[in-house]
Amino acid sequence: MPPDYVGKVVIDNLPLLLEGFWITIWLSILSSLISLVLGTVIGVARIVPFRPLRSFGTVYVEFFRNTPLLIQLFFFYHGLPRAGITFSAFESALWSLAIYHAAYVAEAVRAGIQSIHRGQMEAARSLGFSYLATMRYIILPQAFAIVIPPLGNLFIALLKNTSLASTIAVAELLYQGEVLDSRTFRTFEIFTAVGILYLCLTLPLGGFVNLVERRLARAGRGA
C-alpha cells in the first residue's frame, strides 16, 4: 500500500467517522420520534374546540418555529444550567431538535386533520365516539396518510439539522469530522467524506418519501 494517497486519511480514520455517523442516526431517530408524538399532540391541540388549548398550540408553534434552532440549542445547553436544570450535550441536542421540529410536525398534522371532511368526525360522534376516540381511530389515521410526504421532508431537514449539535460538542458526524480536521488538516478530504456520509442517509430517505408519495397519489386516484 502506498504511504499516502488521496482519501487515505478517511480510510484510516473511518471508525471515528462511523462513530459519529451512528450518533447522528441515533440523534435523528430519537428526536424524530419525540417530535412526531409531541407535534401530533400540539397539532391536535391547535384545532380542539377548547380555546386555552388552542392558544397554547398556537403560541408553541409560533415561538419555536420563529426562533433559530441554534439559539434553542444554546439555551438548553448553556442557559438552563443557570436555572439549575442540567442536560448532557446529547440530551440538549435531542430535546431542542425534538421541540423545534415538533412545531413543524404540528403544522403538518393540523393541515392534514383539516383536510379530512367534517362528515368523518360527525359520523363518528353521532355513533357514540368521544372526541378523542374519533381523533385517534378515525381522523388521525387518515390525516397521517396525507401528511407522510411533508413529514418525510421534515425528517430529512431534521437529520441535517443534527449537525448543529457539533457546536455543543455532541460527538456526531460533523463533530468527528472537525476533530479529525484539526488533527490532520486534510480539510478537503474529510469534509467531502462527511458530506457523502450525510448523503448516505438523506438520499435513501428522500427516495423512500418519493415512493410513498407516489403510492399515496395512486391510492388517492382509487387505483
Binding site: G119, Q120, A123, A124, S126, Q142, A145
Partner: peptide, 18 residues
C-alpha cells in the same frame, strides 16, 4: 352528540375510507 344515542346517515355517506 356521542351521548345522545342517535345515529346519522349523511348525503356523502361519510364512511371511513381507511
Amino acid at each position: 352528540p356521542q351521548e345522545r344515542d342517535t345515529a346519522m346517515v349523511f348525503q356523502n355517506y361519510a364512511l371511513w375510507p381507511h
